[in-house]
């Protein structure tokens, strides 16, 4: 059975109220959703809270999921809107932390901490939609089409955000060397 069929089966079971099926969906997609939100918010603890809220919202609204995008994309979209609204209401732009950078330092193929710090700082300066597009496409490996569906933006706008965001991040790495 393919991954897509498995996911469809789990969604049908979760809609019937089977919490184990929904737990399996959370288990399968938490890494991508949390990864995206951690990169987008720049604040590890807040991002995990938002991811949790996004999954609970998805559970409540599962009947509204039409299957036009993947489940992962749908939950990322819910999380993006919660995070964006929270930033608007609390003006949390300056509340970014970098604790997670140090915690992921023991990965076998980890990039130097200086590079990751420079990138995190540069990410914080990007506009919300540009940062979200970069986090999705360059960070979590979503396609441009998926990112456009998640962010509810035209495909061309997403491509442009990713290109411009990438240029600014590259510039930040160059500046960090100097």
């Amino acid at each position: 059975m393919t991954e897509t069929h498995d996911e469809a089966r789990l969604i049908v079971a979760a809609r019937r109220g089977e919490s184990r099926a929904f737990a399996a969906l959370v288990d399968a997609h938490q890494q991508a959703v949390r990864g995206f939100l951690r990169r987008f918010t720049g604040h590890w603890a807040d991002a995990d809270d938002i991811a949790q809220e996004a999954f609970v919202t998805a559970w409540r609204k599962l009947d509204a999921f039409e299957g036009r995008s993947s489940f992962r994309s749908w939950v990322c979209g819910i999380g993006f809107r919660i995070a964006r609204d929270a930033r608007r209401s609390h003006n949390r732009a300056s509340a970014r932390d970098t604790d997670w950078l140090a915690e992921s330092d023991d990965a076998p193929d980890a990039a130097p901490i200086e590079d990751r710090m420079a990138l995190a700082a540069a990410m914080a300066t990007l506009p919300d939609e540009q940062r979200a597009a970069v986090a999705l496409c360059l960070g979590e490996g979503f396609s441009h089409t998926e990112a456009a569906a998640i962010l509810k933006l035209p495909l061309g706008t997403v491509k442009s955000h990713v290109t411009r965001g990438r240029e600014r991040l590259l510039k930040a790495l160059e500046t960090n060397d100097g």
Binding site: A23, V26, Q30, Q31, R34, G35, S104, D109, R116, L173
Partner: peptide, 18 residues
């Protein structure tokens, strides 16, 4: 850039989160 951005920033499995 690819190396620094491509590294996963969340755990693959996390029973506590689930």
């Amino acid at each position: 850039l690819s190396r620094a951005l491509g590294a996963p920033v969340a755990p693959k499995r996390d029973a506590r989160f689930v």
